[in-house]
Amino acid sequence: MSDTSIVLRIIPVSYLSALGVRRPHRMIERHVMAYRRQWLIVVSGFFEPLFYLLSMRAGVGDLVGDVSVAGRAVPYDAFVAPALMASSAMNGAIFDSTGNVLHRLKYARIYDAALATPMGPADVALGEISWALIRGQIYAIGFLAVMAAMGLTESWWCLMALPVCALIGLTFASIGFLGTTYMRGWSDMEIVNTLMMPLFLFSATFFPISSYGDWAWVVQLSPLYHGVALVRACNAGVWTASLVVHALVLLVISVVMLAWASRRIDRLLRR
């Protein structure tokens, strides 16, 4: 099957078609066609987290020393690497579901064109989010390979980080897509950038949650915090009951945001 759609394989097709979802893979096909000419843009998304990782190993790691994770001492770069992996899953998903979607929605009117065909709003929404997930998975695989090459992976359990990154991607792509349906124009993208920075810095990314003291509960409000905790656990191969909670938080946010976003896009495009 050449029409790559992860979603179609996970959820029974009959259920999706009842929701008006029949052709989300066409949206993905469109993006593959468009990005064939712009592959450099796709590749470049991989480098930012990689440079972060290199700087953590070369500089910061020596200053900080070891960090305690689940009662074990871990070198700082091995502590930060899974968090950077989770962050890059978030960044990729947000990037694809905000700026790119805003452009196609309001300026290029790609969706208006698609909706004049048998394609429906739900196809558009699901197609866009699936695309963000596929792109995110490509980066996650690349990132994991680099981590392994640098000796930062601890066991084969680290492969579990890939589906976890897909879940993080789903969560943030849904949030981003929903947010974009409320945007008035490009200036609103500033809000996205402003929100992303603290999420990136204060989701127990660069220091363990214990170091936040009384403010730890604020950190737990960040969806990225739950993603970071999951990826870290995967890399360490340490499984605790709290991970179920982390995964559930992300799953619930995703489902709610997806349902909301589908309704919004329907109202926007089928006025």
């Binding site: 052709r23 066409r26 096909e29 469109r30 066609m33 468009a34 000419r37 712009q38 290029a108 790609i110 064109a113 698609a114 065909t117 048998p118 394609m119």
Partner: peptide
Amino acid sequence: DTELSVQENLWIYGRYF
């Protein structure tokens, strides 16, 4: 679709159908 060529515009539209 300004990100696609002239004929790609026709191809992808056919795919939507």
